Simulated assay, not measured.
Amino acid sequence: MTDELDLLREANPVSADSGPWRDRPLDGRAELLLRRLPSRDRRRRTVRRRAVWSLGAAAAATVVALALTVSGTGSSPAVAAPRPLPLVAHASRADVPLADIVRRTRAAAEESPGKSERGSHFQSWALGMKSGEDAVTLPRESLTRWNADGSGSTLEVATDPRHPGRPVIEDGPPPRTVHDGKVLSEDHYPPGIYGANQSYFEDPPAGASALRTYLAVWSPGADRDPVELLSAIQSFLRVWTPGPRQRADIVTLLSGIEGMRPAGKVTDRLGREGQGFRFTGTPGSRYLIVLDPDDGRVLDVEETVTEDDPEYRVKAGDVMSYTAYMS
Protein backbone atom coordinates (compact mmCIF):
# COMPACT_ATOMS: atom_id res chain seq x y z
CA MET A 1 0.00 0.00 0.00
CA THR A 2 2.91 2.35 0.73
CA ASP A 3 4.03 2.30 -2.90
CA GLU A 4 0.53 3.18 -4.11
CA LEU A 5 0.22 6.04 -1.63
CA ASP A 6 3.63 7.39 -2.62
CA LEU A 7 2.60 7.35 -6.28
CA LEU A 8 -0.66 9.13 -5.51
CA ARG A 9 1.07 11.79 -3.41
CA GLU A 10 3.69 12.34 -6.11
CA ALA A 11 1.05 12.69 -8.82
CA ASN A 12 -0.88 15.16 -6.63
CA PRO A 13 -3.97 15.11 -8.89
CA VAL A 14 -5.79 17.59 -6.64
CA SER A 15 -3.38 20.15 -5.22
CA ALA A 16 -3.99 22.16 -2.05
CA ASP A 17 -4.62 25.35 -4.03
CA SER A 18 -7.12 23.85 -6.47
CA GLY A 19 -10.13 24.91 -4.40
CA PRO A 20 -12.88 22.81 -2.80
CA TRP A 21 -12.78 19.30 -4.26
CA ARG A 22 -15.68 17.52 -2.64
CA ASP A 23 -18.61 16.41 -4.79
CA ARG A 24 -17.16 17.51 -8.11
CA PRO A 25 -15.47 15.62 -10.95
CA LEU A 26 -11.74 15.80 -11.48
CA ASP A 27 -10.54 18.27 -14.08
CA GLY A 28 -8.60 17.28 -17.20
CA ARG A 29 -5.20 17.64 -15.54
CA ALA A 30 -6.18 15.45 -12.61
CA GLU A 31 -7.60 12.78 -14.92
CA LEU A 32 -4.36 12.77 -16.92
CA LEU A 33 -2.18 12.43 -13.82
CA LEU A 34 -4.25 9.58 -12.42
CA ARG A 35 -4.16 7.67 -15.70
CA ARG A 36 -0.40 7.97 -15.76
CA LEU A 37 0.01 6.20 -12.42
CA PRO A 38 0.03 2.61 -13.77
CA SER A 39 2.61 3.53 -16.41
CA ARG A 40 4.81 5.33 -13.91
CA ASP A 41 4.65 2.33 -11.61
CA ARG A 42 5.74 0.08 -14.47
CA ARG A 43 8.65 2.41 -15.20
CA ARG A 44 9.81 2.22 -11.59
CA ARG A 45 9.94 -1.56 -11.82
CA THR A 46 11.99 -1.47 -15.04
CA VAL A 47 15.52 -2.40 -13.97
CA ARG A 48 17.22 -2.30 -17.36
CA ARG A 49 15.94 -1.13 -20.74
CA ARG A 50 16.66 -2.72 -24.14
CA ALA A 51 15.06 -6.12 -23.60
CA VAL A 52 17.17 -7.24 -20.65
CA TRP A 53 14.71 -9.56 -18.93
CA SER A 54 14.37 -10.35 -15.26
CA LEU A 55 15.69 -13.71 -14.11
CA GLY A 56 12.14 -15.02 -13.78
CA ALA A 57 11.17 -13.97 -17.31
CA ALA A 58 14.35 -15.43 -18.77
CA ALA A 59 13.75 -18.70 -16.95
CA ALA A 60 10.17 -18.83 -18.22
CA ALA A 61 11.35 -18.18 -21.77
CA THR A 62 13.87 -20.99 -21.44
CA VAL A 63 11.15 -23.42 -20.38
CA VAL A 64 8.92 -22.39 -23.29
CA ALA A 65 11.74 -22.54 -25.80
CA LEU A 66 12.81 -25.98 -24.62
CA ALA A 67 9.21 -27.19 -24.83
CA LEU A 68 8.67 -25.77 -28.32
CA THR A 69 9.54 -28.40 -30.91
CA VAL A 70 8.97 -28.76 -34.62
CA SER A 71 6.15 -31.14 -35.51
CA GLY A 72 7.08 -34.54 -36.84
CA THR A 73 9.39 -37.42 -36.08
CA GLY A 74 12.85 -36.62 -34.83
CA SER A 75 12.02 -33.03 -33.93
CA SER A 76 14.56 -30.90 -32.08
CA PRO A 77 14.10 -27.94 -29.70
CA ALA A 78 13.59 -24.61 -31.45
CA VAL A 79 15.85 -22.92 -28.89
CA ALA A 80 18.83 -24.21 -30.89
CA ALA A 81 17.96 -22.00 -33.87
CA PRO A 82 20.32 -19.15 -34.78
CA ARG A 83 19.54 -15.52 -34.05
CA PRO A 84 17.90 -13.55 -36.88
CA LEU A 85 20.05 -11.40 -39.11
CA PRO A 86 19.29 -7.67 -39.33
CA LEU A 87 17.01 -6.51 -42.12
CA VAL A 88 18.98 -5.19 -45.08
CA ALA A 89 18.10 -1.87 -46.69
CA HIS A 90 19.09 -0.95 -50.25
CA ALA A 91 19.16 2.72 -51.17
CA SER A 92 18.12 3.72 -54.70
CA ARG A 93 16.77 6.66 -56.66
CA ALA A 94 13.29 5.19 -56.32
CA ASP A 95 13.29 5.62 -52.53
CA VAL A 96 10.30 7.50 -51.15
CA PRO A 97 11.23 10.32 -48.73
CA LEU A 98 9.46 10.41 -45.38
CA ALA A 99 7.99 13.82 -46.23
CA ASP A 100 6.33 12.30 -49.30
CA ILE A 101 4.85 9.47 -47.23
CA VAL A 102 3.45 12.07 -44.84
CA ARG A 103 1.80 13.92 -47.73
CA ARG A 104 0.36 10.71 -49.15
CA THR A 105 -1.10 9.57 -45.85
CA ARG A 106 -2.54 13.01 -45.13
CA ALA A 107 -4.23 13.13 -48.52
CA ALA A 108 -5.64 9.62 -48.03
CA ALA A 109 -6.93 10.51 -44.56
CA GLU A 110 -8.70 13.62 -45.86
CA GLU A 111 -10.35 11.62 -48.60
CA SER A 112 -11.36 8.74 -46.34
CA PRO A 113 -10.61 9.23 -42.62
CA GLY A 114 -11.68 5.67 -41.76
CA LYS A 115 -11.54 4.45 -38.21
CA SER A 116 -8.97 2.67 -36.09
CA GLU A 117 -9.93 -0.83 -34.98
CA ARG A 118 -9.32 -2.35 -31.59
CA GLY A 119 -7.10 -5.39 -31.85
CA SER A 120 -3.85 -6.28 -33.57
CA HIS A 121 -1.90 -9.07 -35.23
CA PHE A 122 1.88 -9.12 -35.00
CA GLN A 123 4.99 -11.25 -34.79
CA SER A 124 7.72 -10.33 -32.33
CA TRP A 125 11.12 -11.58 -31.28
CA ALA A 126 13.32 -10.44 -28.42
CA LEU A 127 16.77 -11.26 -27.11
CA GLY A 128 16.50 -12.03 -23.40
CA MET A 129 19.84 -11.42 -21.72
CA LYS A 130 21.36 -12.50 -18.44
CA SER A 131 24.82 -11.46 -17.30
CA GLY A 132 27.46 -14.03 -18.20
CA GLU A 133 25.10 -16.43 -19.97
CA ASP A 134 23.99 -17.09 -23.53
CA ALA A 135 20.92 -15.14 -24.57
CA VAL A 136 17.45 -16.70 -24.60
CA THR A 137 15.18 -16.16 -27.59
CA LEU A 138 11.42 -16.39 -27.73
CA PRO A 139 9.70 -15.59 -31.04
CA ARG A 140 5.95 -15.05 -30.71
CA GLU A 141 2.87 -14.31 -32.75
CA SER A 142 -0.12 -12.60 -31.18
CA LEU A 143 -3.65 -11.94 -32.43
CA THR A 144 -6.25 -9.89 -30.55
CA ARG A 145 -9.74 -9.33 -31.92
CA TRP A 146 -12.76 -7.47 -30.52
CA ASN A 147 -16.42 -7.80 -31.51
CA ALA A 148 -19.10 -5.12 -31.77
CA ASP A 149 -20.56 -6.10 -28.37
CA GLY A 150 -17.22 -5.59 -26.60
CA SER A 151 -16.33 -9.26 -26.36
CA GLY A 152 -13.01 -10.44 -27.66
CA SER A 153 -10.17 -12.93 -27.61
CA THR A 154 -6.37 -13.01 -27.52
CA LEU A 155 -4.22 -15.84 -28.84
CA GLU A 156 -0.46 -15.90 -28.36
CA VAL A 157 1.73 -18.62 -29.85
CA ALA A 158 5.46 -19.33 -29.59
CA THR A 159 6.76 -19.81 -33.13
CA ASP A 160 9.60 -21.85 -34.59
CA PRO A 161 12.54 -19.44 -35.10
CA ARG A 162 13.89 -21.61 -37.90
CA HIS A 163 10.94 -20.44 -40.02
CA PRO A 164 10.84 -16.67 -39.43
CA GLY A 165 8.00 -14.84 -41.10
CA ARG A 166 5.76 -17.87 -41.52
CA PRO A 167 2.45 -17.02 -39.83
CA VAL A 168 1.28 -19.56 -37.28
CA ILE A 169 -2.12 -17.99 -36.53
CA GLU A 170 -4.92 -17.87 -39.07
CA ASP A 171 -7.24 -14.94 -38.55
CA GLY A 172 -10.87 -15.89 -38.63
CA PRO A 173 -13.94 -16.60 -36.54
CA PRO A 174 -12.46 -18.09 -34.42
CA PRO A 175 -8.69 -17.61 -34.86
CA ARG A 176 -6.74 -20.86 -34.97
CA THR A 177 -3.15 -21.99 -35.00
CA VAL A 178 -1.56 -23.34 -38.16
CA HIS A 179 1.93 -24.73 -38.87
CA ASP A 180 4.29 -25.28 -35.95
CA GLY A 181 3.81 -23.50 -32.68
CA LYS A 182 3.03 -23.80 -29.00
CA VAL A 183 0.12 -21.87 -27.51
CA LEU A 184 1.42 -19.62 -24.74
CA SER A 185 -1.93 -18.13 -23.80
CA GLU A 186 -5.50 -17.98 -25.05
CA ASP A 187 -8.01 -15.68 -23.39
CA HIS A 188 -11.65 -14.84 -24.08
CA TYR A 189 -13.38 -11.72 -22.80
CA PRO A 190 -17.12 -11.23 -22.13
CA PRO A 191 -19.25 -8.55 -23.81
CA GLY A 192 -18.66 -4.99 -22.70
CA ILE A 193 -14.95 -5.31 -21.90
CA TYR A 194 -13.52 -3.70 -25.05
CA GLY A 195 -9.99 -3.96 -23.74
CA ALA A 196 -10.67 -1.87 -20.63
CA ASN A 197 -7.97 -3.84 -18.84
CA GLN A 198 -5.35 -2.80 -21.40
CA SER A 199 -3.37 0.34 -21.97
CA TYR A 200 -4.70 2.69 -24.67
CA PHE A 201 -8.25 1.49 -24.01
CA GLU A 202 -9.76 4.83 -25.03
CA ASP A 203 -10.32 5.65 -28.71
CA PRO A 204 -7.28 7.47 -30.14
CA PRO A 205 -7.82 11.15 -30.99
CA ALA A 206 -7.36 12.83 -34.38
CA GLY A 207 -4.32 15.00 -34.97
CA ALA A 208 -0.62 14.29 -34.45
CA SER A 209 -0.29 16.59 -31.44
CA ALA A 210 -3.35 15.08 -29.75
CA LEU A 211 -2.08 11.57 -30.47
CA ARG A 212 1.28 12.39 -28.88
CA THR A 213 -0.50 13.57 -25.72
CA TYR A 214 -2.67 10.43 -25.76
CA LEU A 215 0.42 8.22 -26.03
CA ALA A 216 2.12 10.09 -23.19
CA VAL A 217 -0.74 9.22 -20.83
CA TRP A 218 0.34 5.58 -20.97
CA SER A 219 4.02 6.11 -21.78
CA PRO A 220 5.27 9.12 -19.81
CA GLY A 221 8.03 10.83 -21.73
CA ALA A 222 6.54 10.13 -25.16
CA ASP A 223 5.67 13.81 -25.44
CA ARG A 224 9.33 14.87 -25.16
CA ASP A 225 11.69 11.92 -25.68
CA PRO A 226 11.98 10.35 -29.17
CA VAL A 227 12.92 6.90 -27.85
CA GLU A 228 9.91 6.91 -25.54
CA LEU A 229 7.72 8.12 -28.40
CA LEU A 230 8.88 5.27 -30.63
CA SER A 231 8.32 2.79 -27.80
CA ALA A 232 4.83 4.20 -27.22
CA ILE A 233 3.95 3.88 -30.91
CA GLN A 234 5.04 0.24 -30.84
CA SER A 235 2.91 -0.41 -27.75
CA PHE A 236 -0.06 1.37 -29.30
CA LEU A 237 0.21 -0.79 -32.44
CA ARG A 238 -0.04 -3.89 -30.25
CA VAL A 239 -3.45 -2.72 -29.08
CA TRP A 240 -4.89 -0.91 -32.13
CA THR A 241 -4.87 -1.30 -35.90
CA PRO A 242 -4.81 2.35 -37.05
CA GLY A 243 -7.13 3.70 -39.71
CA PRO A 244 -5.97 6.22 -42.34
CA ARG A 245 -6.21 9.20 -40.00
CA GLN A 246 -4.15 7.62 -37.21
CA ARG A 247 -1.66 6.24 -39.74
CA ALA A 248 -1.13 9.77 -41.00
CA ASP A 249 -0.70 11.03 -37.44
CA ILE A 250 1.84 8.32 -36.62
CA VAL A 251 3.89 9.04 -39.75
CA THR A 252 3.75 12.76 -38.92
CA LEU A 253 5.11 12.04 -35.43
CA LEU A 254 7.89 9.87 -36.87
CA SER A 255 8.82 12.60 -39.34
CA GLY A 256 9.30 15.00 -36.45
CA ILE A 257 11.91 12.82 -34.71
CA GLU A 258 15.28 14.51 -35.01
CA GLY A 259 17.87 12.15 -36.43
CA MET A 260 15.44 9.98 -38.42
CA ARG A 261 17.31 9.14 -41.64
CA PRO A 262 16.31 7.32 -44.85
CA ALA A 263 17.79 3.80 -45.11
CA GLY A 264 16.46 2.51 -48.43
CA LYS A 265 14.07 -0.17 -49.57
CA VAL A 266 13.57 -3.17 -47.31
CA THR A 267 12.06 -6.61 -47.82
CA ASP A 268 10.90 -7.60 -44.36
CA ARG A 269 10.65 -11.01 -42.70
CA LEU A 270 7.13 -11.47 -44.06
CA GLY A 271 8.26 -10.79 -47.63
CA ARG A 272 6.72 -7.32 -47.78
CA GLU A 273 8.50 -4.43 -49.47
CA GLY A 274 8.71 -1.20 -47.55
CA GLN A 275 10.71 1.97 -47.09
CA GLY A 276 13.22 1.91 -44.24
CA PHE A 277 14.26 4.74 -41.92
CA ARG A 278 17.00 4.57 -39.29
CA PHE A 279 17.14 6.30 -35.95
CA THR A 280 19.93 6.12 -33.36
CA GLY A 281 18.33 6.13 -29.94
CA THR A 282 20.11 5.62 -26.65
CA PRO A 283 23.87 5.00 -26.88
CA GLY A 284 24.48 1.48 -28.11
CA SER A 285 21.21 0.96 -29.99
CA ARG A 286 19.80 1.77 -33.42
CA TYR A 287 16.27 1.40 -34.76
CA LEU A 288 15.04 0.55 -38.24
CA ILE A 289 11.44 1.56 -38.92
CA VAL A 290 9.88 0.12 -42.08
CA LEU A 291 6.84 1.89 -43.56
CA ASP A 292 4.52 1.05 -46.40
CA PRO A 293 5.30 3.98 -48.72
CA ASP A 294 1.77 4.01 -50.15
CA ASP A 295 -0.45 4.11 -47.07
CA GLY A 296 2.01 4.85 -44.25
CA ARG A 297 1.44 1.65 -42.30
CA VAL A 298 4.21 0.73 -39.86
CA LEU A 299 5.32 -2.69 -41.11
CA ASP A 300 8.30 -3.34 -38.83
CA VAL A 301 10.33 -1.87 -36.01
CA GLU A 302 13.73 -3.45 -35.34
CA GLU A 303 16.39 -2.61 -32.76
CA THR A 304 20.04 -3.60 -33.16
CA VAL A 305 23.11 -3.27 -30.97
CA THR A 306 25.79 -0.84 -32.14
CA GLU A 307 28.44 -1.76 -29.55
CA ASP A 308 29.88 -5.02 -28.24
CA ASP A 309 28.74 -5.95 -24.74
CA PRO A 310 30.80 -8.94 -23.50
CA GLU A 311 28.89 -9.12 -20.23
CA TYR A 312 25.69 -10.02 -22.09
CA ARG A 313 27.46 -11.79 -24.95
CA VAL A 314 26.17 -9.53 -27.69
CA LYS A 315 28.11 -7.93 -30.53
CA ALA A 316 27.58 -4.84 -32.63
CA GLY A 317 25.02 -5.63 -35.32
CA ASP A 318 23.10 -8.21 -33.26
CA VAL A 319 19.32 -7.89 -33.40
CA MET A 320 17.92 -7.02 -29.98
CA SER A 321 14.25 -7.17 -30.91
CA TYR A 322 11.86 -6.80 -33.80
CA THR A 323 8.13 -6.57 -34.33
CA ALA A 324 6.37 -7.17 -37.63
CA TYR A 325 2.82 -5.78 -37.68
CA MET A 326 0.53 -7.96 -39.77
CA SER A 327 -2.78 -6.06 -39.59
Score class of each variant (00 low, 15 high):
residue 1 M to A: 08
residue 4 E to A: 11
residue 8 L to K: 03
residue 10 E to P: 00
residue 13 P to W: 08
residue 20 P to K: 09
residue 20 P to Q: 13
residue 20 P to H: 09
residue 21 W to I: 06
residue 22 R to N: 08
residue 24 R to A: 13
residue 29 R to E: 13
residue 31 E to M: 02
residue 42 R to M: 10
residue 47 V to D: 01
residue 52 V to N: 01
residue 55 L to E: 00
residue 58 A to R: 15
residue 61 A to E: 06
residue 63 V to Y: 09
residue 73 T to E: 08
residue 74 G to A: 05
residue 76 S to G: 09
residue 87 L to F: 04
residue 90 H to S: 11
residue 91 A to W: 02
residue 92 S to R: 13
residue 98 L to K: 02
residue 100 D to F: 10
residue 103 R to H: 04
residue 109 A to E: 03
residue 110 E to W: 12
residue 112 S to W: 07
residue 120 S to L: 09
residue 121 H to R: 14
residue 122 F to P: 01
residue 124 S to K: 13
residue 128 G to M: 10
residue 130 K to Q: 12
residue 132 G to L: 03
residue 134 D to C: 00
residue 135 A to F: 00
residue 135 A to V: 00
residue 140 R to A: 09
residue 140 R to K: 13
residue 144 T to M: 07
residue 145 R to D: 06
residue 145 R to G: 09
residue 147 N to P: 00
residue 151 S to R: 09
residue 168 V to S: 15
residue 175 P to H: 12
residue 176 R to S: 07
residue 177 T to Q: 15
residue 179 H to Q: 14
residue 181 G to F: 08
residue 185 S to K: 09
residue 192 G to H: 04
residue 193 I to R: 15
residue 193 I to G: 03
residue 193 I to T: 12
residue 194 Y to Q: 02
residue 196 A to W: 08
residue 214 Y to R: 03
residue 215 L to M: 03
residue 216 A to K: 06
residue 221 G to D: 04
residue 225 D to R: 08
residue 225 D to L: 07
residue 225 D to S: 12
residue 225 D to Y: 10
residue 226 P to K: 05
residue 227 V to N: 07
residue 227 V to T: 14
residue 228 E to K: 13
residue 245 R to Y: 06
residue 251 V to S: 05
residue 253 L to E: 08
residue 264 G to D: 08
residue 265 K to T: 15
residue 276 G to K: 14
residue 287 Y to D: 06
residue 289 I to Y: 06
residue 289 I to T: 15
residue 296 G to Y: 13
residue 304 T to F: 00
residue 312 Y to D: 00
residue 313 R to L: 06
residue 322 Y to S: 14
